[in-house]
Simulated scan of single mutants.
Amino acid sequence: MTADWGDALGGTVVLAEKWPVLGRHERAVGWLQVWADLGRAPRTIDAYSRGLAEYLLVCEREGVDPLTANRAHVALFVRELTSRPSRRGANVVSIDSGAGLSNATIQQRLVSVRLFYDFLMEEGLRESNPAGRGRYTPGRRQSGQQRGLVPRMTKLPWIPSEQQWLDILRVARDEPIRNRVMLALAYDAALRREELCSLRTDDLDPARRMLRVRAETTKNRLERMVPYSASTGVLLSGYLTHRSTLSRARGPLFLSESRRNHAQPLSLWTWSKVVRRIALEASVPRFSTHTTRHLCLTDLARMGWELHTIATFAGHRNTDSTLQYIHLSGRDLADKLSRGMEHIHAWRINMLTSTEPQRCPGDGSDVRGAR
């Protein structure tokens, strides 16, 4: 691994230690450096590095030069991903385990390989991309319909049941005020983990109970203003008083209270560990830092918020992302079922109380009413 690459990726040596195979492939280093120079988020670079490193390891194992690999070699990589045994059982919580990869994670790995070969084509080192974006599906009338190397599964987000939510609250009630206010804001404002941990004191507007989610902290670089409730405001006020005992300086809102990082900004990983500990203590292992966001948006859909309003609140660039919460809430289906049942109910009552022959809905038969 070259020192220049470490500097390009923010001076970190973590990637070099984690995936030394990348340092053995000059073009891989060059590709990642381009993304780093373009200012991609560290987590994006990390995901690209992980996916490409796993592919390069398969190439080395098979004695294949990645620059001349064909679709059969990429298919071999796909088979390795889809058949990889799970060391932790069927339900793997962390993708860092290197086992039991989900469909979404496999798609993410393939994105890294696909973009790497796009880069090689742009550099004139290849004429085609062996990990192309699929092929046209026979029988599809709509132009542009493609089928990828691995069928993409679209699953609805997981949200806890009411009892599971109460179990989480029971455990959270005994947490320090910082953790309680972070959970409250994460749900109240439907914040992503990075958005929550990146909040600053000057992002708050206590008078109007609003907070600003800065563009550079969001997934799609869309800044937004979101409200929070009065009860969260009371909790937040208590935390600000507590925070002043750690630091009176303006800056990151949530600070570490550990001896090692006292009064330093709270890291994403520390918050993840806090939520994981709460989830395990509450016996709700599927609960994660993103669950509060899923739950909030689903609750808004249940309350009848319009699609575009929820999308604006969530910071979604496309309403396709918002639709999954409408589906998860069952709102549209429940409304249709309710309207349909009202019609059937009215027909049955009318049939019971009428002395005239009744026609069954949907067919041509007559039914004699009760006399």
Results as ranks from 00 to 15, higher is better:
residue 4 D to A: 13
residue 5 W to Y: 08
residue 7 D to P: 00
residue 10 G to D: 10
residue 15 L to M: 15
residue 20 P to Q: 07
residue 21 V to P: 04
residue 36 A to H: 07
residue 37 D to N: 12
residue 40 R to G: 00
residue 42 P to M: 02
residue 47 A to N: 12
residue 50 R to I: 00
residue 52 L to G: 06
residue 59 C to T: 08
residue 66 P to W: 07
residue 74 V to K: 09
residue 75 A to V: 04
residue 75 A to N: 09
residue 79 R to N: 10
residue 81 L to S: 00
residue 98 G to V: 02
residue 105 T to C: 03
residue 105 T to F: 01
residue 110 L to W: 05
residue 120 L to W: 05
residue 121 M to G: 08
residue 130 P to C: 02
residue 135 R to Q: 10
residue 135 R to I: 13
residue 136 Y to G: 09
residue 139 G to P: 06
residue 140 R to Y: 10
residue 152 R to V: 11
residue 157 P to E: 07
residue 163 Q to K: 12
residue 163 Q to H: 06
residue 177 I to D: 02
residue 178 R to T: 09
residue 184 A to E: 07
residue 194 E to W: 10
residue 195 E to G: 11
residue 208 R to L: 08
residue 208 R to H: 12
residue 213 V to S: 01
residue 216 E to V: 08
residue 224 R to P: 11
residue 228 Y to V: 10
residue 231 S to T: 15
residue 231 S to H: 09
residue 237 S to K: 13
residue 238 G to C: 14
residue 254 F to T: 06
residue 256 S to F: 07
residue 258 S to G: 13
residue 260 R to I: 03
residue 265 P to A: 12
residue 267 S to Y: 05
residue 281 E to K: 12
residue 284 V to G: 11
residue 288 S to H: 02
residue 292 T to A: 14
residue 295 L to N: 01
residue 297 L to H: 06
residue 304 G to V: 13
residue 305 W to F: 14
residue 309 T to W: 05
residue 316 H to D: 00
residue 326 I to N: 04
residue 342 E to Q: 10
residue 343 H to D: 11
residue 346 A to T: 13
residue 346 A to C: 02
residue 361 P to H: 04
residue 364 G to H: 13
